[in-house]
């Protein structure tokens, strides 16, 4: 018996060695870029729609990693051991990372030679990859027939809409929502009146048993009935609604946010990374992507490829954009330290 096993092992090991030899790179010049993203189902989609066709076209291999993490970027750049060639970043991360000098300037002559990208998408150290919204989601079966919250004032109204709620464990967005609930008009949100926002949040504090920390969690809380309303990312609820679950979102009072791609300083393949960024702006591939994940961004020529009824459900559609406010990353990057300290003390003591 032992002998058999050993022989079997020997054969297996031999085969492995052979396959390793066969799989060894045929070209000495082959490059692999490491692209860091948010992982999960999203990464599978990105691999299928962007990375594999890109490798086919250019011969450059793409290795996806996760998750998006500013501390990791900091550690990589500061230690000089930069593993990523490209990484996703959110708006205020871009501001922080740029100030700290962790990002490389981007050469838009490579990415956008015909100058078709709108200026808002082209930051000196990062390019807009996607746009998404933090909006209000709610259970349609908890408040009686035909009754659904339509504003952050409703979210704060625990008499008309009873039941526990959830918000993200972060001041970002929540201070704005509190001010909207308190009657501040969307164009007067910034600079944020922090004092007033916290005062408004005080009123709701005891109705929030749990403060979510990631996208999977807010979906779970809503589906399990732990909360009747929560703030959420727009892309997460639509699939559940289509499955027939009693949930819905409203874009009213939502925060329109941007997600970026940037190249860490000291990245080994910046040129190849920029070629991949160009590929991410391909209208047909982007349209295929947005049909799966409703985070559109500003890819020129993409909207024209989409069904108008579907395009209307995207966060950047004219009707939806009109009822939201533009999240101000610059204000947050300047104030994040002080506000976060206050937030943690307010929340955790």
């Amino acid at each position: 018996m032992t002998k058999m096993t050993r022989r079997a092992f020997g054969v297996g090991a031999g085969a492995t060695a052979a396959s390793l030899a066969a799989g060894a790179p045929a070209f000495a010049q082959e490059t692999t870029i490491v692209v860091n993203g948010s992982g999960g189902a999203l990464a599978t989609m990105i691999t299928k729609i962007f990375e594999e066709p890109f490798t086919k076209e250019t011969g450059i291999k793409v290795k996806p990693t996760a998750p998006v993490s500013l501390p990791k970027l900091k550690a990589m750049v500061e230690s000089g051991n930069v593993e990523w060639d490209l990484t996703e970043l959110n708006g205020d991360d871009v501001v922080t990372a740029t100030k700290a000098g962790w990002l490389m300037p981007i050469d838009y002559a490579i990415i956008d030679p015909d100058n078709k990208l709108p200026p808002i998408a082209k930051q000196p150290t990062a390019m807009v990859r996607a746009s998404y919204s933090t909006v209000m989601a709610f259970r349609t079966d908890k408040f009686g027939k035909g009754k659904a919250p339509q504003s952050w004032a409703d979210f704060w109204d625990v008499k008309a809409f009873p039941g526990p709620r959830s918000l993200e464990n972060s001041p970002k967005g929540n201070l704005e929502f509190a001010l909207l609930a308190d009657g501040v008009s969307p164009d007067k949100l910034y600079p944020i009146d922090v004092e007033r926002a916290f005062k408004k949040l005080d009123q709701l504090k005891k109705h929030i048993p749990v403060w979510w920390t990631n996208g999977a969690q807010h979906v779970q809380l809503l589906i399990d009935g732990e909360v009747s309303m929560t703030s959420c990312w727009n892309g997460r609820i639509t699939p559940l609604k289509n499955e027939g679950k009693p949930v819905d979102i409203t874009f009213k009072g939502g925060a329109l946010m941007l997600s970026y791609l940037g190249i860490p300083k000291g990245a080994r393949h910046p040129k190849e990374a920029m070629r991949f960024m160009k590929f991410r702006m391909d209208p047909a591939a982007s349209a295929a992507f947005v049909k799966q994940v409703p985070y559109p961004g500003f890819v020129p020529g993409m909207m024209e490829l989409l069904d108008p009824a579907f395009a209307a459900t995207l966060p950047t559609s004219p009707e939806n954009a009109a009822v939201q406010f533009e999240f101000n990353s610059a204000w947050w990057a300047d104030n994040i330290d002080a506000v976060t300290t206050r937030w943690n003390e307010w929340l955790l003591i």
């Binding site: 993490s69 501390p71 976060t340 300290t341 943690n344």
Partner: peptide, 15 residues
């Protein structure tokens, strides 16, 4: 939340 969570918060969120 306990101290490990707070340490994590300072490492990952506030840097």
């Amino acid at each position: 939340i306990l101290i490990a969570n707070l340490i994590d918060l300072q490492v990952h969120k506030t840097l």
